[in-house]
Design a protein around this nucleic acid. Structure first.
Lengths: 163, 163
DNA sequence: TATTGTTATACTCTATAACTATA
DNA sequence: TATAGTTATAGAGTATAACAATA
């Protein structure tokens, strides 16, 4: 959130626009999901685990989280009674995330909530802009933008113990 | 970054799209600015401080940062020799951020870099989508989206000492 | 040897609190 | 009393490392 809001006489400040809209949407989504006791991550895992056999790692990749973050998220889902860890029948190292009956109901509800938030956001736009916005963002998200994106993050220094 | 990348048979996942594009752009911008030794925040402060008399608080608001984060950013800019703190002539509590000559050159360069990144991103889109994307994001950023955004963040708990 | 999942922990980031000096 | 700026530090979030079990 260090983008400028004041327009220079140059390019449109895409950084500010994406940061700002993303922030506001995240905030709205978090608030909406919080009403049924879910975080965005719990929602994401839940929705992608219903009906299919997926391991924690697979779900972590889908939601782009670290496997250790996945552990925390699963802990929360288990405490809430929405999902369980079951040993995989094919790989005894892995755990399948099984959504409970109540979890499935919650997942459906939370997907409705998420869709509702998205709909209400898009509703603020003139109809002809909606599709173009989604299409343009999808285009940027899938490839073109990624290509040139090196990894500039200097990689977080590791804890080092002894020599 | 807990949005799903797998399309449900529902609304387009605007959360994922904004998160993802925002993340990639932030990453690219950070990498590009890092080549001249700037962070996004330093760039933002520098660019909005050249030529005008602005206090730290004013610049912090423009860049949407906390005043304590502004202190850190100013420390970095001073170390680099790009900006200085000067007492305000009208309010002896406040410090005006004065950009040095070298700082002004760097600001111009960093603005070119930022514009270049934005241009190259937009270049990935068919021409007719570019304007619409920017216009739609601007519309969402300015008001409509904000209106319904309550503050759901439970406010970070304060350190409490004694009673 | 490599991988899944876990625990423990360290690091980064950023905001709160408390303070000084002014207004 | 309130505000600009500073310092110190707490807290959230998240990644790294090391480990156990299994592949």
């Amino acid at each position: 959130m260090a983008s400028s809001s004041i327009p220079e006489r140059t390019e449109p400040d895409l950084s500010f626009l994406l940061d700002h809209t993303g922030y506001v949407l995240r905030t709205r989504m978090a608030a909406a999901l919080a009403e049924i006791g879910l975080t965005a991550r719990m929602h994401c895992v839940l929705v992608h685990a219903v009906g299919v056999e997926r391991t924690q790692i697979e779900l972590a990749e889908i939601g782009d989280m670290d496997k250790t973050t996945m552990v925390v998220t699963m802990d929360a889902l288990e405490r809430a009674g929405y999902a369980e860890r079951r040993p995989s029948s094919t790989d005894r190292r892995a755990r399948i995330v099984v959504v409970t009956e109540e979890g499935a109901r919650v997942a459906e509800r939370s997907q409705q909530i998420a869709d509702g938030v998205h709909r209400s956001v898009l509703a603020a736009l003139p109809e002809d802009e909606r599709d173009v916005l989604v299409r343009a963002l999808a285009r940027l998200a899938s490839g073109e933008l990624e290509a040139a994106a090196a990894q500039p993050q200097p990689v977080r220094r590791a804890r080092q113990r002894s020599a």
